[in-house]
């Protein structure tokens, strides 16, 4: 049955459009944010291409590698001249690009291209956006509460807290 064979063949237009669009928009936002640092722009460009390739070829590996490239670009640009606030703000679209792209891939795998998906895509994107805003906001508030130069012991204890919470939340 030819029509079924056609349905099973991956098609670039088959991905849920909203999530894929948010992912691409986030990649473009990162490119715009790091455009002033050539090395970071190179990393971001490569990462962005890998994200697009991951979406087109349905490859999670390419997607993760691409987002890693974007994150390295943001760190590279942020540690040079950017403030911690800038770094925090620039990382948010990186995470959003990865999360929405993965959501698009999973939706296509489980539901296909004919069923409507916009409602769950909207709910997912808004939920993730809210979580990122809340998480980043709390982190930023803690950062802003610090007065003076933080002691090495305080940084070590905070790192220990991050590791312990990560282990607990796995």
């Amino acid at each position: 049955m030819p029509q079924i064979a056609d349905r099973e063949r991956p098609s670039p237009a088959g991905l849920p459009r909203f999530s894929a669009g948010v992912s691409i928009a986030s990649v473009l936002a990162v490119l715009g944010l790091v455009a002033s640092v050539p090395v970071a722009l190179a990393f971001a460009g490569g990462g962005g291409l890998a994200v697009v390739a991951g979406l087109l070829r349905r490859s999670e590996l390419a997607l993760t590698a691409g987002v890693s490239g974007l994150f390295i670009a943001v760190i590279q640009a942020g540690t040079g001249a950017g403030s911690p606030e800038w770094l925090l703000g620039a990382t948010a679209p990186v995470v959003l690009a990865w999360v929405t792209a993965r959501h698009a891939l999973r939706l296509e795998t489980q539901i296909g291209v004919e069923a409507p998906t916009l409602r769950v895509e909207l709910v997912h994107t808004i939920s993730v956006g809210t979580l990122l805003t809340a998480g980043g906001g709390v982190g930023y508030l803690i950062y802003r509460s610090v007065t003076g130069t933080p002691s090495p012991l305080a940084l070590g204890l905070l790192l220990l807290a991050v590791v312990a919470f990560t282990v607990a939340l796995r």
Binding site: V95, G135, G139, Y140, L169
Partner: peptide, 8 residues
Amino acid sequence: TFGVALAG
């Protein structure tokens, strides 16, 4: 903090 928020 982004990661901790998502994992949490």
